[in-house]
Design a protein around this nucleic acid. Structure first.
Lengths: 243, 243
DNA sequence: AAGTGGTCTAGACCACCAT
DNA sequence: TGGTGGTCTAGACCACTTT
């Protein structure tokens, strides 16, 4: 187990070194998503630190969203929580308040050569093959978002032949392509609808929209997906408490 | 000091009870903003719990943004951090990267009877007096936001005669009116500029804007300010990491 | 009953800050 | 030099989960 020892001489506190060690093991797939990691006592014995130090490090990891803990059961590797994504700010609740799953319509699913903007974000060379997937998502008769998704072809070879009706992508990436999405970076800015977008979303030309750009990463911080989403502005609401 | 003892019999953990006690003391102005609170050891002695329990409670409060700690100095009551406000997502950095303070222009400063929408948010009755303050904020020649601010007249009597050039409001509220802003709730949604807004912001009609509504609270969760901000969409950028 | 994480204690030692 | 928070240890006891 002792791949790398914690070092008291190091300038960093032991529990910070331990946090980094844990994150490395997850990034390197030594501990995979959903897996139970060794108990506090085991870690303390193996790394030769006190249980309290291990506990502190684990709690930092929980705070950072990479682990979760269950009393009496153990400590587990968390999967990224896309309920925290910007997408959750598009409110499209049905009248009865039910949380239905949106329907998906595929508009485009094809293999193309990566435009330079996409290649750059995926850290591949321009012209290398990518899968382009354009779809809309609809709930209660309202199409609230249109998405352009670009995937590295080498990683997702065969995905272009999938029948994608209402399925979530990331579980498929994980199970069928051995490529779990571990984290993602999202950028958001407002815009107004162009003609094409307005038609797809059923809104007026120049109506407000929110544009979300997501780059999703797998092991070793390798980007594998770029996604541009354009959502109806009239369904976007976001609140924070400033303190 | 012993206003309220911590109780081991209580169903809640001691450190949670302590967190609640601390927040009460701040809300009730027993400990005010910027003030140093008693040290870990003092609190431990007075409340008859161990130093470790106090430390845990204090760290929770730091996490919640109500306290901050300085090694070698002490633990202090934090003031709300409006660098965490939505306004920080309007990027208006100058070319040389300097962080200049935006210039303010007052458009309206008058006492009016509260419209129902405002009265409701301030928890006063419709028609009660409020101060209306409309201003723009400009940096590097770009007017990036126009704001309508409504204040309870009873609380801020005399504010309508202030000369407000580039001053921050919340320090004035605190020093001149004895009303510190302790926290605020902000809601944000996209829209497009109407004629008036477009002129003030120097953008085209129907250009994208972001609308921020803030309700700011003082002691005992009393709302005292409502603020509607409309900012240029082309300067709004926001990023998150989803994990 | 055995193992897990959650709480709480008591104390040591260190780094930092004011005086 | 004395007081502060930051780190780390060692151990007790509890609540929860599984076998």
């Amino acid at each position: 187990m002792a791949i790398k020892d914690l070092n008291v001489q190091n300038e960093k506190p032991l529990y910070i070194q331990l946090v980094e060690l844990i994150k490395e093991r997850i990034a390197d797939n030594i501990w995979s998503i959903g897996m139970m990691i060794p108990s506090e006592n085991e870690l303390a014995r193996e790394l030769d630190v006190s249980a309290g130090t291990v506990k502190k490090a684990l709690n930092v990891c929980v705070q950072d969203g990479v682990l979760f803990r269950r009393q009496g059961k153990g400590t587990f590797v968390a999967s990224p929580d896309f309920s925290k994504s910007f997408n959750r700010f598009f409110r499209f609740a049905s009248k009865d308040g039910e949380q239905n799953i949106p329907a998906t319509e595929t508009l485009v699913l094809e293999v193309i050569e990566a435009p330079s903007e996409i290649a750059e974000k995926l850290k591949i060379t321009t012209g290398e093959k990518v899968i382009k997937y354009r779809r809309t998502r609809t709930l209660n008769g309202i199409t609230f978002v249109v998405e352009d998704i670009y995937l590295i072809y080498e990683t997702f070879k065969g995905f272009e032949n999938y029948n994608l009706s209402g399925k979530f992508l990331y579980p498929i990436f994980h199970s069928d392509f051995g490529t779990p999405i571990l984290w993602a970076k999202e950028d958001i800015h407002p815009d107004v609808a162009d003609k094409n977008t307005a038609e797809l979303l059923g809104i007026e030309l120049k109506a407000p929209v929110m544009c979300i750009e997501r780059i999703a990463y797998t092991h070793k911080d390798q980007p594998v997906e770029v996604r541009f989403s354009i959502g109806r502005g009239d369904t976007f609401r976001y609140s924070i408490i400033v303190r």
